[in-house]
């Protein structure tokens, strides 16, 4: 069982030890349609739980990306620079940034996959 948590704003974090891989959920990817640009931070940038760290652009609009945790950017997914569509095609495999998790207790504030699924169901109405 993987350790995946979500924000209500549709970002996920997949936790592996003290590292986290942040991306957008399947639900969000479906809503966005074709992703044409992912605005990512630089390695070594700080991210803060609840703050935006970048944006994702579909044809129609830009959506801010929010960080589920506080930490330091270890890497960005460079494949997205030339091929942002990967996020639309497989958002769980194509994370956007890798971060070190400064405070693991923050994970407790996030939605579990079950709670997130319920959140999406409510949003659809």
């Amino acid at each position: 069982m993987e350790n995946i948590y979500y924000l209500p704003t549709h970002e996920y974090i997949r936790v592996e030890g003290d590292k986290g891989y942040i991306g957008i959920s399947e639900f969000a990817a479906k809503q966005l349609g074709n992703v044409v640009y992912v605005d990512m931070p630089e390695p070594d940038d700080e991210v803060c739980a609840g703050d935006d760290f970048g944006a994702i652009e579909s044809v129609k609009a830009a959506s801010d990306l929010y960080s589920p945790v506080t930490g330091i950017v270890v890497a960005v997914n460079e494949a997205l620079i030339d091929n942002p569509r990967l996020v639309s095609e497989n958002p769980m495999a194509n994370w956007i940034i890798e971060v070190t998790i400064a405070d693991p207790t923050e994970l407790g504030d996030l939605l579990t996959p079950e709670a997130y699924a319920e959140h999406c169901a409510n949003e659809k109405h």
């Binding site: 044409v36 640009y37 605005d39 652009e57 609009a61 830009a62 620079i81 942002p84």
Partner: peptide, 10 residues
């Protein structure tokens, strides 16, 4: 305007 790079000016 033609923008250099992939960013989209909204």
């Amino acid at each position: 305007l033609e923008i250099e790079g992939p960013a989209i000016a909204r």
